[in-house]
Nucleic acid binder design. Structure first.
Length: 642
RNA sequence: GCCGAAGUAGCUCAGCUGGUAGAGCUACUGAUUUGUAAUCAGUAGGUCGGGGGUUCGAUUCCCUCCUUCGGCUCCA
């Protein structure tokens, strides 16, 4: 007998060779029906795989992460079966589960998939699922596997086999489809009741754009139709919170064909938000001893040759324009200009740390396919600053930048983010990264030490650094689940030398500063795009582009309404007056939809009492209040970033 | 840039297999003077993304360019 330990700590005894399914069945029939896979000693297994020794066991249902992943992985195989059946001879690369569904990368040969084809594949998948075919695990030696795929002429699976050794090669078969696969899988296709294929896309083989492009089909499945319906409804709902939709509805920004792709136009309300963000940043930076500078939007080629951007970054820059026999580039970043400012006057160690800040506008030639609303644009204004400091000051300066992040994220109520320590990739020195291995290692160690000391959780990722040094990126997710770097904090050990930047130290010797590039609020474009989604358009009072709307009951009270408006405006608030000849219900409805935080209803009573009837967006009527009291209340909220 | 899809009024969308376009909201005008999520009536608004082709005739079919969307690659 072997001992099976369940997550609640209870131990049950079984004959060796017992399967997780049998364990589930011994507990209850209902459980046995719902369970999809099992975690055996921390590893996800097929339900039908025999367990031969004492083990810990966790039964995974669809609701469990591992169960879901297994379910979708098996669904990918089911889709592959339907596709192979309809298009014999197509070759399959990989078909992994995702957080929401799965995909399979396929070399379709000369076949092309259309949306209509997806519908018929879906239909066939449902039919195949109903056949209740079992997913059968087959162990195979490497020689056998190589032979199988050589005969099949499948170079993709042969390529996968290269990385595998004997003993770890398994195949899975369901119905007519057999695939090289490590598994695990659900017991049978009959669990898959609801199928939706979401999209067709091209995906480069192994993610390298020099390779052939395969056809990637995205899909999602569920054990119940109602779950699929709910999922699709949720996607629909998420689309309503997409910053592109909200940006249009709330009149924040627009794009125009004649201005150009990726070049957003900020409408007055968008500009109002920008003003407030800048105010916050400028005040915060001022407190931390930053000084502000201003630099032009272009510069001669020589500047970017010196900075190293041209060799490493040219593809992302707009092509140069010729003037007076010189090439000029639109700036893709502010640092070279700032370095020139640092270098313009001799510096002493007493001047350091020197923190040069600018909301500089940069232009980057993003590939057309990458443009994405405000999140990925070609002109952007960065919450930029460069800190020039000594090695001894580095840790403290770096920590202070982190403090800024934390302060900002608290104000904005951002709690779901990931701090990513982006490192270089040694094999790409001299191509993607400046060729100085020891300096990379030294700097990365320095950054890691500071990060560990700061106690903020972070992940390390290779091959994500800037060309001049490692960086800390803050990753956030958009309403529709796209991941973005919102903020960045970069260490630069290369440019001080390239620009020959020095300061005189205490011993009357010239020394190079370390440079920190930092942009805690990223760019206005991406940050406001993110905020739109984060707040679902309901900006807090301090940040709202329209903070108060005054809604007179009728035009008899317009004079008083104007008085209220002017009083609030004198206090620096963004106020509008709805003087349309509409009924109050209509005015309220329209203002609610604009997400204006405060509505002030004014009529006979308010005029007599010098008062306002306050209505909070999303909350309803808060009752009447003296105008002076309301002004004090809202100013207090603004002051506290509420 | 690559693979796939789409582009009709300011917005959301309708327009069967080719016979030069329609609704709701918005805007404007008038009436209504209104008390916490839509008052009524009228008016205006589109070289159907641009260009070219096929056709007696193109929003509809074909080509091409532009833009947008879903991905890939890339990135703040």
């Amino acid at each position: 007998m072997i001992k099976i330990t369940l997550p609640d700590g209870s131990v049950r005894e079984f004959e060796p060779g017992v399967t997780a399914y049998q364990v589930a069945a011994s507990i209850s029939q209902g459980l046995a029906k719902a369970v999809l896979a099992a975690e055996v000693n921390g590893e996800v297994w097929d339900l039908t795989r025999p367990i031969n020794q004492d083990s810990s066991l966790k039964l995974l249902k669809f609701e469990d992460e591992g169960g879901k992943k297994t379910f979708w992985h098996s669904s990918a195989h089911l889709m592959a079966e339907a596709i192979e059946e309809a298009y014999p001879g197509v070759k399959f690369w990989v078909g992994p589960p995702l957080d929401n569904g799965y995909y399979y990368d396929i070399d379709m040969g000369d076949n092309k998939l259309t949306e209509d084809d997806l519908r018929s594949i879906e239909k066939r998948m449902t039919e195949l699922a109903a056949q209740a075919n079992k997913y059968i695990r087959i162990e195979m030696s490497k020689d056998e596997a190589v032979k199988y795929f050589t005969e099949k002429g499948d170079e993709y699976k042969l390529d996968l086999l290269k990385g595998l050794t004997d003993g770890e090669i398994t195949f899975y078969k369901q119905g007519s489809f057999t695939d090289l696969c490590r598994g695990p899988h659900i017991p049978s296709t009959e669990y898959i009741k609801a199928v939706k294929l979401l999209s067709i896309a091209g995906a480069y083989w192994k993610g390298d754009e020099k390779n052939k492009q395969l056809t990637r089909v995205y899909g999602i499945t569920f054990p119940k139709q109602v779950q699929l319906d709910a999922h699709l409804a949720m996607l629909e709902e998420a689309r309503k919170n997409d910053h592109r939709t909200l940006g249009r509805e709330l009149e924040i920004f627009t794009f125009d064909d004649e201005v150009g792709p990726g070049l957003p136009l900020w409408l007055p309300k968008g500009a109002a938000i920008i003003e407030k963000l800048e105010k916050l940043a400028k005040e915060s930076e001022h407190e931390q001893g930053y000084v502000r500078v201003k630099t032009p939007h272009l510069a001669k080629e020589a500047l970017y040759l010196r900075s190293g951007h041209l060799p490493y970054y040219a593809e992302s820059m707009f092509p140069p324009m010729e003037m007076d026999g010189q090439k000029y580039y639109l700036k893709a970043m502010n640092c070279p200009h700032h370095h020139k400012i640092f270098g313009a006057l001799p510096k002493s160690y007493r001047d350091l740390p020197m923190r040069l800040a600018e909301y500089g506008t940069c232009y980057r030639y993003e590939q057309s396919g990458e443009l994405f609303g405000l999140m990925r644009v070609r002109s952007m204004q960065m919450n930029d600053a460069h800190i020039y400091c000594t090695k001894a000051q580095f840790a403290e300066e770096f920590m202070k930048v982190n403090e800024l992040y934390v302060k900002y994220f608290k104000i904005f109520g951002i709690d779901k983010y990931q701090m990513r320590f982006s490192k270089h990739e040694p094999s790409k020195l001299g191509q993607k990264y400046i060729d100085n291995a020891p300096l990379w290692i030294e700097t990365e160690n320095m950054v890691r030490e500071v990060l560990i000391k700061s106690g903020v959780p972070f992940v390390e990722v290779a091959d994500e650094a800037a060309f001049y040094g490692p960086k800390i990126d803050i990753q956030l997710w958009s309403a529709i689940g796209k991941e973005f770097t919102i903020a960045t904090n970069q260490v630069d050990f290369a440019q001080a030398e390239r620009f020959d930047l020095t300061f005189m130290n205490e011993h009357n010797e010239k020394e190079r500063p370390i440079i920190i590039h930092r942009a805690p609020l990223g760019t206005h474009e991406r940050f406001i795009g993110f905020l739109l989604e984060h707040y679902a358009g309901k900006f807090p009072v301090w940040l709202a582009p329209e903070q108060v709307a005054i809604l007179p009951i009728s035009d008899k009270y317009l004079d008083y309404a104007k008085e209220v408006r002017d009083t609030l405006r004198k206090n620096g608030l963004e106020v509008t007056l709805d003087d349309r000849a509409e009924k109050i219900g209509k005015k309220i409805r329209d203002t609610e939809l604009k997400r204006t935080p405060y509505m002030l209803v004014v009529g006979e009573k308010e005029q007599t009492d010098k008062a306002v009837s306050v209505r909070r967006q999303g909350q309803g009527d808060l009752g009447a209040m003296g105008l002076a009291d309301f002004t004090a209340k809202i100013l207090e909220e603004v002051k506290n970033y509420l």
